[in-house]
């Protein structure tokens, strides 16, 4: 595929939006010629869909690893902010990309690859909560004393002796922990909007809910957390 100017890219985005009824190809439909031309490109030049084609039709481990490397931060961060534990997050992260591997041939570019990945990650995260019997929401009042102290110290203006990074790790971790106690739908929406900085339209697609509802969840989540901060006298 020849390199494209930004003008062409924008024009393509618009044309994609206007041609919804055109059947979308899957990763298993590429011709030999197309695959050859994709293989001629450097890894960084291949689109996500092109990498999936190489992976599905030519079993390219390199293509799979490039996809993982390209999107690992976004996917891992979503999972980590949802479960709040690195070890569990890494297990779910691995399972997410193994599901991607197994189901790559079913992917169609109707949705962004990251949206598809995050949908898989979300489903696995919810499975994890069910499996572990975790229903931590409605327990924002059950913060540990340790967390309260460190949050309180930081917000009260007590700073470390040697150096200070403005927002301390303790504050960040305290809020992060409180986020894991929100109801699941609010937590998902909040993580994707505030931590991941996704557009509401994309979040709605990932969660399978209307945009208006997603906004409501985000606002409610922030409201709950802010009231929790106030109750603790930490704001």
């Amino acid at each position: 595929m020849p390199r494209r100017s930004w003008g062409e890219i924008v024009a393509q985005r618009k044309s994609i939006a206007k041609t919804e009824k055109v059947p979308t190809p899957t990763a298993r439909n590429a011709s030999r010629h197309e695959l050859d031309s994709i293989e001629e490109k450097a890894s960084t030049e291949r689109t996500d869909f092109e990498l999936l084609k190489l992976f599905v039709q030519r079993s390219s481990q390199d293509a799979f690893e490039t996809l993982v490397t390209r999107h690992r931060r976004q996917v891992y961060n979503f999972i980590f902010k949802m479960v709040g534990k690195a070890e569990a997050a890494e297990d779910i992260f691995q399972e997410t990309f193994l599901r991607v591997l197994k189901n790559a041939h079913t992917y169609t570019p109707r949705a962004k690859f990251t949206t598809w990945c995050l949908q898989i990650a979300r489903n696995l995260t919810l499975d994890y909560f069910k499996r572990e019997g975790l229903r931590r929401h409605a327990s924002l009042d059950a913060q540990s004393d340790e967390t309260e102290r460190s949050m309180g110290q930081m917000l009260a203006g007590i700073v470390p002796e040697s150096s200070e990074v403005l927002v301390s790790r303790e504050m960040i971790e305290g809020v992060r922990d409180a986020v894991t106690r929100l109801p699941e739908n609010q937590r998902e929406a909040l993580v994707l909007r505030v931590y991941q900085d996704l557009q509401y339209s994309e979040i709605a697609e990932i969660l399978g809910s209307p945009e208006g509802t997603v906004k409501y969840w985000v606002h409610e989540a922030i409201g709950q957390l802010a009231r929790w901060l106030e109750r603790k006298g930490l704001s």
Binding site: Y76, A89, V167, I172, V175, V194, Y195, S235
Partner: peptide, 15 residues
């Protein structure tokens, strides 16, 4: 304050 803290939370990376 809450939004400030959340936005200051760095992106973690998988090991």
């Amino acid at each position: 304050s809450l939004l400030g803290v959340m936005r200051a939370d760095p992106q973690a990376d998988v090991s």
